[in-house]
Design a protein around this nucleic acid. Structure first.
Length: 474
DNA sequence: GGTGCAGCCTC
DNA sequence: TTCGGAT
DNA sequence: ATCCGAAGAGGCTGCACC
């Protein structure tokens, strides 16, 4: 394994320090620990592990964590020493993901909740300090500040009076979502409603309207969480990030904002203005946890996602774990005019290992199969070169989240846009359609139609404000 | 200066 | 992002 | 439960090359 330069430094420091610790009797303790049973040992280790993990989630930086560990060990103070810090990204908190809207409603058992549409964009974590220095991190905590210069300029300006520094998280719509999406829909004011999960009609309606305007789905936050008994109201742990006063109507986008602090342990901003005329959200932001009061229902997780029947026409050799099988697999739609099969995407998702094995056996001549062919059949439209071409004979039902105008695939070329074909986003294999022959597979017309519907829904729901797209919307 | 591709990023 | 599989 | 790895689409950037 390659170590980056800082890691090497750390390793050296560790070794030196352990020698010191050894001389002062640390080994005795190690011997004691070694004598303990596994269960007891787990009991000893687990709380410590929790503390270290919590620190690392708040400040994923070994240069801080390791020296502090060596100096003070695993203790509560570590959470202060290695707590949240501006311009160092904290790990993102995610909501629990729910596949099925109905199931979610059942789970919520009628509790009150706040619903927000979740934009289909890029997650960004924005840090702004008292000198208006802004740093922006991506979902994977990469520094993306330079990609969002307008945001860098904007954030200090919109900072509320009295807030010295802040960390917020939200969704930016800089890339994909702005390209092929009707801008008017992007400009739509962020939708947010409070509802009770007993009103399944309202929730379903909200989900539908959100996905219609090409949001990724919705976020559902339970409003009536009781305070955590472990956290007295005046708790001021520095590691805990606290929500600012909740103003959901104003708060924009998927910006599940949280706030702020200064470096001293006793200077955490608490929910000061208690002007909320609604039930409180749980106030803590736990960067390393998925939370049961916060759920996401996404379009492409949804069991009611669109499906299309595609024909498998070729594949590549898999690598490493999948080297015995073919993956990815090339799929095509049928052009009902020409009879040609037009490649529309490669599929990697939804296959079990067993399915891969069966698939290999079926098409590989060396495996008793024998229905793949050496060269590209003339009736297949595809510019690339798979490892093998299949003799088209299977129709697969696949679920998809979105249809995209593709720079590479030529399926449905000209039906939506001259020079551009269509492809599929988040495609997953569902099942083999034993009951369907090639002639009954999805057509390029159908695909184009589906694309049209997708756009039309967005247009219809979208608001009129088209003009002046700011580079990022929240 | 334009194009195409590799590499890296996002979902 | 997805998924399935291993741990 | 959690983590890991194999891969998809598309977008942007920077560089080599014409």
């Amino acid at each position: 394994m390659l170590l980056s330069a800082p890691d090497r430094t750390i390793r050296r420091v560790c070794i030196q320090k352990f020698h010191v610790v050894t001389e002062s009797g640390y080994w005795n303790k190690v011997d004691e620990l070694a004598a303990l049973s596994k269960d007891v040992l787990t009991e000893v280790h687990t709380p410590g592990e929790g503390v270290v993990k919590a620190c690392f989630a708040r400040r994923p930086n070994y240069n801080n964590l390791v020296p502090a560990l060596l100096e003070i060990g695993v203790c509560d103070e570590l959470l202060i020493r290695c707590g949240l810090s501006l311009h160092i990204p904290l790990r993102s908190m995610s909501g629990g993901i729910t596949r099925d809207l109905g199931k979610m409603l059942t789970n919520l058992q009628g509790r009150d909740c706040s619903l927000k549409s979740k934009y289909d964009g890029h997650q960004a974590q924005v840090h702004c300090d008292e000198h208006s220095k802004v740093t922006i991190f991506s979902r994977h905590l990469e520094v993306m500040t330079d990609k969002y210069l307008d945001l860098v300029a904007l954030v200090p300006k919109i900072r509320a009076k009295g807030v010295e520094s802040l960390i917020i998280e939200g969704e930016t719509l800089a890339n994909r979502a702005r390209k092929d999406v009707v801008i008017g829909t992007v400009k739509t004011e962020v939708k947010s409603i409070d509802a009770t999960s007993a009103d399944s009609g309202a929730v379903s309606e909200f989900f539908k309207s959100a996905t219609d305007v090409r949001c990724e789905g919705i976020k559902v936050k339970v409003l009536d969480n009781l305070p955590n008994p472990d956290l007295p109201p005046d708790d001021v742990d520095a590691d805990r990030v606290l929500l600012p006063p909740s103003t959901p109507q104003k708060r924009k986008g998927a910006a599940a904002a949280k706030a702020k602090k200064k470096s001293s342990a006793n200077d955490v901003v608490v929910n000061s203005k208690s002007s909320t005329h609604r039930k409180a959200l749980l106030a803590t932001y736990e960067p390393d946890k998925r939370l049961d009061f916060w759920l996401e229902v996404k379009k492409h997780y949804n069991t009611s996602a669109d499906t299309i029947d595609l024909i498998s026409v070729g594949a590549w050799h898999g690598i490493s774990r999948k080297c015995k099988w073919w993956s990815p697999i090339l799929l095509a739609v049928r052009n009902s005019g020409t009879g040609y099969l037009e490649a529309v995407t490669k599929c990697i998702s939804g296959f079990s290992d067993k399915f891969y094995a069966t698939n290999r056996a079926k098409y590989d001549p060396d495996d008793g199969g024998g229905t793949n062919v050496n060269s590209k059949p003339s009736y297949i439209e595809y510019g690339g070169r798979p490892s093998v071409w299949f003799e088209p004979q299977e129709v697969w039902e696949c679920a998809l989240a979105d249809i995209t105008l593709s720079p590479t695939y030529m399926a449905a070329l000209g039906l939506v846009r001259e020079e551009r074909g269509l492809s599929l986003r988040f495609l997953g294999f569902s099942r083999v359609r034993e009951d369907k022959g090639n002639e009954e597979a999805g057509t390029s017309d159908f695909l184009a139609e589906l694309y049209g519907k997708q756009q039309a829904r967005a247009l219809q729901k979208g608001e009129e404000k088209i003009r002046d797209a700011e580079k990022e919307e929240w």
